[in-house]
């Protein structure tokens, strides 16, 4: 890793997430292996790479989704807040602290309001006024409030794709997560909204750590303090984002990908 003078000053913060010798496999097929990385508090950590690089599997492993997926096997060590996630007493508590947004938007078949109030209610918040505040704040941050404020009673699953994606983001925010993971969130959203959400993410860095998986290398450049490049189930390189884009790379493949020669 080259110079640590990244824009967020991440080096100074404590370590949020430490991954050691991670290997993810489905049956005989290895989705990702040999990943070693550390993500710091309040950092935006970008992950770039073409399809089938193992990015989504990586996020699933962090969230311990292998528990519900009998075919998925995770080896290696993942420490979240210093706690080994392999030996959790309550995996649900871990997941409730990690907000995830996957590329396919999912509006749950309940009202928009209930979609966002779902997680707070599970946390035990029943006070209507308190829920109102949370719903409005999360929808505003996800750049959706203005569009749905007059129809909070509409079914979340019948919103447009872009709206559902922002609803998904609002739902992830409603968890008040420690760690927010976004997986190619801009696929279903128009460019203007993408920019608005990107601004929100920059703001959110004050509060949460963010892992941003993206297929748009420029998005990683705009947002991420440090970026990892995944290729074909392998973590090729991790570095300060600016370094990757200015050609200070250890692996030629990284430069080729960043410059758009493949992917």
């Amino acid at each position: 890793m080259h110079g640590r003078q990244s824009k967020g000053g991440a080096a100074a913060s404590p370590i949020k997430l430490a991954v050691k010798d991670l290997r993810i496999s489905y049956g005989k097929a290895v989705a990702l292996q040999g990943v070693n990385l550390e993500i710091h508090e309040h950092e935006i950590f970008g992950i770039i790479g073409p399809a089938n690089a193992g990015k989504t599997s990586f996020l699933k492993a962090l969230n311990r989704m292998d528990v519900f997926n009998t075919g998925m096997r995770v080896d290696g060590e993942i420490r979240f807040n210093g706690l080994d996630t392999r030996h959790l007493k309550n995996v649900y508590a871990l997941r409730s602290r990690i907000g995830v947004v996957f590329p396919l938007p999912v509006g749950l078949p309940m009202t928009v309001y209930d979609n966002v109030a779902l997680s707070p209610r599970w946390r035990g918040i029943t006070n209507k006024a308190e829920l109102d505040v949370i719903v409005q704040r999360c929808l505003t941050r996800a750049a959706l409030w203005d569009e749905v404020k007059d129809r909070l009673g509409a079914l979340g699953s019948l919103l447009s794709g872009g709206q559902q994606q922002r609803l998904t983001i609002a739902r992830a925010l409603s968890q008040e997560p420690d760690l927010l993971m976004l997986d190619e969130f801009s696929i279903a959203v128009d460019p203007v909204t993408t920019m608005r959400i990107e601004d929100v993410l920059k703001e959110l860095r004050q509060e949460v750590t963010i892992i941003l998986v993206t297929n748009l290398v420029q998005q990683a450049r705009r947002l991420a303090d440090r970026t990892a490049f995944f290729l074909n189930g392998e973590c090729v390189e991790i570095g300060v984002t600016e370094d990757l884009f200015t050609g200070e790379v250890k692996d030629k493949r990284t430069r080729d990908y960043v410059e758009g020669r493949f992917g």
Partner: peptide, 10 residues
């Protein structure tokens, strides 16, 4: 953040 919170949620 850190170890105290970590143990608390699990």
């Amino acid at each position: 953040p850190g170890a105290a919170t970590a143990a608390a949620f699990d």
